[in-house]
Structure formats: structure tokens, C-alpha cells
């Protein structure tokens, strides 16, 4: 049964059935996404450094924005993805753990991007506000959000059965995602040192020059593509890890059985 009709997904996972072997988690689709990511990212870097002009007030430090804003946006996107995947895995009673794996992979990538948003924001803050860190509402709530998801990942790393891991972490993810609106609107709600959003603000008007806006927008596209690529690969990696456990157990049982027969 195994070598006649393997599912396309399973085949892709192991690199069997395709012309090139030893591919690990790559498929034609992810390769296209990867190339698109590289292309858009190159354009963003070139435009951010060489084409766009410095801001009237902030000068060159505005070039950090093209990394900071997309990183923060992708982190939100990742955490919302985690929550949606977790919600589905709780409500549906599939035996497959696919949704749980997507949730975990997305949170991993989200934590990376949230960390990047914090680091780049801190450097930008030093240049514009004159301070690396300040206990203001936006920064504090963002830090709590980051810690919350570090905790979520810690729960996922615990050595429990995949089903138990899935249930516990799904509840966590559904609680944690509720912090996001609080973080995003903390700038509007409390007065904050952090500026209000320039694009997604309540008034609905965009406060960016044309080329600056386009560069920022392509940054969001590039980072989102990178996010998709990373999540797909990490999700499949997790599947391989789970699979390794099963295969390892099977072969161990087989080996012991042979021993018993021989004895």
C-alpha cells in the first residue's frame, strides 16, 4: 500500500516521488514562495537604503521603519494565525494534529518577529525619542505579549503526548490572542510616547509620502511571504519530528520482537 499510492503531502515530506531527492520539507510551491520572498526583500532593502529619501524631521533613522513596522505586523498576523488554528483544533475532533502543528509553527515565527520588532523599535527609539526603553503603555503591553508567547512555546516544548500538548496549548493561544487589540490600540487609548499608526489609524487617512508608503507596503508583503515560507517549513518539520517518534517506536518494537524470536 505504501509505495503504490502515497498521498502527495506525505510524499513531499520525504522527498519521494519527485525527481530530486533529499529535499526535506521543500515542495515546488514553497520554492516559488521562497524566491518571491528573496526578490521582494531585495527590493525593500534597496529602496529603504538608497531610493527613499530621509524624513523631514527624523532624517535617516526613518529607514528603520521599513523593517520595524512589517516585523510587528507579521508578529500580530502570526499570533492571530496561531489562535485560529488552535480554535479549529479544539472545536474539531480530527485525529490529525495538523492544525496544532500550524499553531505551534506560527507562534515560533511570531515570537521571532515580535523580538525583532522590539529590537528594531528600541534602536529607532534611541535615535528619535532619545531613549532605548521607556515604560509607556505601548512598549509595556508589547513586552507582556512577547513574554506570553514565550510561555506558550515553553508549554509546547514539554514532553507530553501530542494530544495533551495540543489541548493545553490551544487554550493558552486563545487566551493570549486577546492581548493583541489591547497592544495595538494602547497608543490611541492611553497617551503614549509611541506614535499612532500611520496607515491603520482610526481616521483612515494615510500619512506617508508615496514612495515611502510603497516601500513600507512592499516590506509588509516581503515579510509576510517570509512568514508563510517559514511556517510551512516549520510545520512540516514538526510533522517529521512526530513521525520520527512513531517510526522509531515501530522499529524498536520490531527489533525487540526479532530478538525474542531468535532467543
Amino acid at each position: 500500500m505504501s509505495d503504490t499510492t502515497p498521498t502527495p503531502h506525505g510524499a513531499a515530506l520525504l522527498g519521494a516521488g519527485t525527481a530530486r531527492r533529499s529535499l526535506g520539507t521543500a515542495t515546488p510551491a514553497t520554492r516559488i514562495i521562497g524566491l518571491l520572498t528573496l526578490a521582494t526583500m531585495t527590493w525593500v532593502v534597496v529602496s529603504a537604503f538608497f531610493i527613499t529619501s530621509p524624513d523631514v524631521v527624523q532624517g535617516d533613522s526613518v529607514r528603520i521603519m521599513y523593517a520595524h513596522v512589517p516585523a510587528a505586523w507579521v508578529a500580530y498576523l502570526a499570533f492571530v494565525t496561531t489562535a485560529i488554528a488552535s480554535g479549529i483544533s479544539v472545536v474539531r475532533r480530527h485525529r490529525t494534529l495538523g492544525f496544532d502543528r500550524v499553531a505551534g509553527a506560527s507562534a515560533e515565527v511570531g515570537v521571532l518577529f515580535m523580538g525583532l520588532a522590539l529590537v528594531t523599535g528600541s534602536l529607532w527609539g534611541r535615535l528619535t525619542w532619545g531613549t532605548f526603553w521607556q515604560w509607556d503603555p505601548r512598549l509595556t503591553t508589547t513586552l507582556f505579549l512577547f513574554i506570553t508567547y514565550v510561555g506558550y512555546l515553553a508549554v509546547r516544548r514539554i514532553d507530553a503526548s501530542p494530544e495533551r500538548r495540543a489541548k493545553r496549548s490551544a487554550v493558552l493561544a486563545l487566551l493570549a490572542v486577546l492581548e493583541i487589540p489591547l497592544v495595538h490600540f494602547s497608543v490611541v487609548l492611553w497617551r503614549s510616547l509611541h506614535q499612532e499608526a500611520s496607515v491603520l489609524n482610526p481616521d483612515g487617512d494615510v500619512r506617508l509620502d508615496g514612495l515611502m508608503l510603497f516601500t513600507l507596503f512592499s516590506g509588509v508583503v516581503a515579510f509576510t511571504l517570509g512568514f508563510v515560507w517559514l511556517v510551512i517549513h516549520r510545520q512540516r518539520l514538526q510533522a517529521l519530528v512526530d513521525l520520527q517518534g512513531t517510526v522509531g517506536l515501530d522499529s524498536a518494537i520490531a527489533a525487540r520482537a526479532t530478538e525474542a524470536v531468535l532467543r
Binding site: 509505495d3 506525505g10 515530506l13 521543500a26 480530527h94 512540516r236 518539520l237 510533522a239 517510526v247
Partner: peptide
């Protein structure tokens, strides 16, 4: 890091029996 880890894992698991397990794992119920 993801690519490298996946590659080494896939190399270790690539057996026909394993394929069957994958097929079973991912079939929606």
C-alpha cells in the same frame, strides 16, 4: 536551520513503512 534539520530528519526516516504512517496521520476524519 529549519531546512537543515528537516533534511537530516527526512534522511533518517525515509522508509516505505514511514510513508504509510504519514498517509494515515494526515487523512482527515
Amino acid at each position: 536551520a529549519t531546512l537543515r534539520r528537516a533534511k537530516s530528519l527526512a534522511a533518517r526516516i525515509r522508509r516505505p513503512e514511514a510513508l504509510a504512517v504519514v498517509a494515515m496521520e494526515l487523512t482527515p476524519r
